[in-house]
Design a protein around this nucleic acid. Structure first.
Length: 677
RNA sequence: GCCCGGGUAGCUCAGUCGGUAGAGCAAUUCACUCGUAAUGAAUAGGUCAGGAGUUCGAUUCUCCUCCCGGGCUCCA
């Protein structure tokens, strides 16, 4: 007897003889929605065939994860068909759905002079036109199954498809797990002799489905976004293909909302705002991936650092300082030269060895620990440093402040006994979340990363013990987490904390890494209560991750409108006329004496223009002073994002501002952790 | 590192089918003295990213390098 899964997840049995198409229509009417997709047996799309015993039908709405997956996946096929129609001799590889859309990889024939043909922006326009024609033609998606012999004939001109047929390449389009649509994952259990096969109107693609019923249904709300190079199978030693990215949605409103979100993100870009607000810059004279901080950026950074130091001081950390360079012997002992060499700047040759800029602070902190004999009474020993490191990131990966070559980590290494490690990581999680909340973030998700397949140090037991410690701390704090197999650092597994920003993007910032390996390599010991020598466990953690990256994320999160406690200029005083300047100067010095960061813009331009400039600089408070204020000792308060208030007593304003700034420290002093769902 | 696209004044950009460049904003000066998002005028500002080649002549064409953006890959 066939069974059906409804959008609410419930299941029920069906009469034989019904078709998926009948069902979808009936269910759609019941749900009061036309946009319903039926999926038979997880792979098949044939709405007209009667259902048979054992068939499983799933019905979902077009805006569910499954529905969007189906729509994006089907649109990718339309893209492939359009490209093959328009470009003689083009061959195609894979085209899976991804977050917000889909892509498809192609290889175009070489030009007569031997140069590889590439897609241009004009090509994308042509392709989009052809795609809309195909959609208008309502071509059905028809499923067929071929033997691999026959499939090799069908795809004889498409070597990448042949690799998939021969099982030498995974086809990510076979990943049908809802909501997880990453490439190169979950290799399909393919029957060797029977290849799934979809074809329509002369265009044939290798695929497992599911698809929409025909190209006219649910498709059309898409846009081709860009073309980029991508290696076949993600391997830089394989051919570089041309990848076309598109976005696709169930409705026009969803598509428009997505495009609007992209504009919003572009307007918040930290590189753009960093320049506009005169916070940071990347002079080409400095070299790639290196930033300088201007005075206003410097104020914000100092606030961040001051706050961080204050919290760490209260949190029981000891402050250390270590140099930017070290003899290569240190990095040989730590394992960095073997495992991290590609990311390190080259050494400086000196009389007594090679000196490397440090890519991490850990070896230096280990030396602090090892500088004398340690007792269990000292543990956990928490060493903290705002440590600047240099990593030779590959040039193509650099991205403003978010991926940079010289950066400062708010880095800590905690040395503790094996008994202490779970408690310590659990309280670390609380500490980290509390500090992140103080900066206006409240939506977190954790990721646990386990041992990499290559380039790692230490025994399996140690790795397992470390991962278990991280896992139990996560569970104790009830922080939702996912597991990322093989993504750990070379010395141990790690927890990464993702935060979600004001427009819903996630950023990976904080990291906690449990390390049983480094203490062994460096022969670290402490004297236990019974007098025996024991090995401590080392916890690496960065809270902001890096000051630069955190600052970049904050800048985008607040769209440049930093909260008052962080704002480089908290208030600006504007005299209405020249003869109010003396009073304006008095207001400035009163506020400055009260610890407010304040400046003035003299009255040689119209008031309206000076207000406009202050607003563009996103200054939290604009204070306008004129005749009334001189007489009454007041100010006109024009707050960012609020209503103008005339005649506010200066003392009252100062108090209000102090209150606002203090509220931040009160709110963040609490270390209570509440889990988000 | 690889693929694609770029680099013109502090910023955003126009322009030169090869004859060494222009706007708006910003800056400076002057005038205006104005109560909540753009007052007017004048001045100054550029080895057209850097280097080499072709040419009578290169910002423009070619090549190389550097830097930036979007991806691949990687990461704090």
């Amino acid at each position: 007897m066939p069974t059906i899964t409804l959008p609410d997840g419930s299941e029920r049995a069906l009469d034989e003889g019904a078709t998926a198409g009948d069902l979808a229509a009936a269910i759609g009417r019941r749900l009061n929605k036309d946009a319903v997709i039926a999926d038979v047996n997880g792979i098949q799309r044939d709405l007209t065939a009667p259902l048979a015993d054992g068939d499983r039908v799933a019905i979902f709405t077009s805006q569910s994860d499954e529905g969007l997956f189906t729509i994006r996946h089907s649109t990718a096929h339309v893209l492939a068909q359009a490209v093959l129609d328009l470009f003689e001799g083009a061959t195609f590889a894979i085209g899976p759905p991804v977050e917000n859309g889909f892509y498809y990889d192609f290889l175009l024939p070489e030009d007569p002079d031997g140069t590889p043909r590439t897609f241009t922006p004009e090509d994308l326009d042509r392709i989009e036109v052809r795609m809309r024609e195909i959609i208008g033609e309502a071509q059905p998606f028809v499923r067929d199954e071929l033997t691999d012999t026959r499939a090799r004939e069908v795809f004889a001109d498409h070597p990448f498809k042949l690799e998939i047929i021969d099982g030498e390449a995974d086809d990510p389009t076979s990943v049908t797990e809802p909501g997880r649509v990453r490439t190169y994952e979950n290799p399909p259990a393919k029957p060797k002799e029977l290849q799934p096969f979809h074809g329509y109107d002369g265009f044939v693609d290798l695929c497992r489905g599911p698809h929409v019923p025909d190209t006219s249904r649910f498709l059309g709300h898409f846009k081709l976004m860009r073309v980029a190079g991508a290696y076949w199978r993600g391997d830089e030693h394989r051919p570089m293909l041309q990848r076309i990215y598109g976005t696709a949605w169930a409705t026009k409103a969803d598509l428009d909302a997505h495009l609007h979100q992209l504009e919003e993100a572009a307007a918040r870009d930290h590189r753009k705002l960093g320049t506009e607000l005169d916070l940071i810059s990347f002079p080409t004279e400095l070299g790639a991936g290196l930033a300088i901080w201007h005075p206003k950026g410097g104020i914000i950074r100092k606030q961040m650092e001051d706050y961080s130091r204050a919290r760490h001081e209260r949190g029981g950390y000891d402050f250390v300082y270590t140099p930017h360079l070290a003899n290569g012997r240190l990095f040989a002992e730590s394992g960095h030269l073997q495992n991290y060499h590609d990311d390190m700047y080259p050494p400086m040759e000196l009389d007594n060895g090679e000196y490397y800029p440090k890519p991490m602070n850990c070896p230096m902190h280990v030396l602090v620990y090892r500088s004398r004999q340690r007792s269990y009474r000292e543990l956990p020993l928490r060493l903290f440093e705002l440590g600047t490191v240099y990593r030779y990131e590959r040039s193509g990966t650099l991205h403003g402040l978010l991926r940079i070559r010289g950066f400062t980590q708010d880095d800590s290494h905690i040395f503790c006994t094996p008994d202490q490690v779970v408690d310590e990581i659990a309280s670390l999680l609380q500490f980290i979340l509390s500090v992140l909340r103080a900066f206006g973030f409240d939506d977190f998700e954790a990721k646990l990363s386990t041992r990499p397949e290559s380039k790692s140090l230490g025994s399996d037991e140690n790795w397992k013990a470390a991962a278990a410690a991280l896992r139990s701390a996560l569970e104790r704090e009830q922080l939702p987490y996912t597991v990322d197999e093989g993504a750990g650092a070379f010395y141990g597994p790690k927890i990464d904390i993702d935060i979600r920003d004001a427009i819903g993007r996630t950023w990976q910032l904080s990291t906690i890494q449990a390390d049983f390996t480094t203490p062994e390599r460096f022969g670290l010991e402490f004297v236990a209560a019974d007098g025996s020598r024991q090995r401590p466990i080392m916890i690496h953690r960065a809270l902001f991750g890096s000051i630069e990256r955190f600052f970049g994320v904050l800048l985008e999160h607040f769209a440049g409108a930093f909260p008052t406690w962080l704002a480089p200029i908290q208030a600006r005083v504007l005299a209405v006329r020249d003869d109010h300047e003396d009073y304006a100067a008095a207001v400035v010095s009163r506020l400055r004496a009260a610890g407010i960061r304040v400046d003035a813009d003299p009255a040689d331009e119209k008031l309206g223009n000076r207000i406009r400039k202050a607003k563009l600089e996103k200054i939290p408070y604009v204070l306008v002073v004129g005749d009334d204020d001189v007489a009454a000792g007041s100010v006109g308060v024009n707050p960012r994002g609020g209503d103008v208030e005339r005649g506010v007593a200066l003392d009252a304003f100062t108090e209000r501002l102090h209150g606002e700034i203090a509220e931040h420290s009160r709110a963040s002093a609490s270390t209570t952790v509440t889990t988000n769902s």
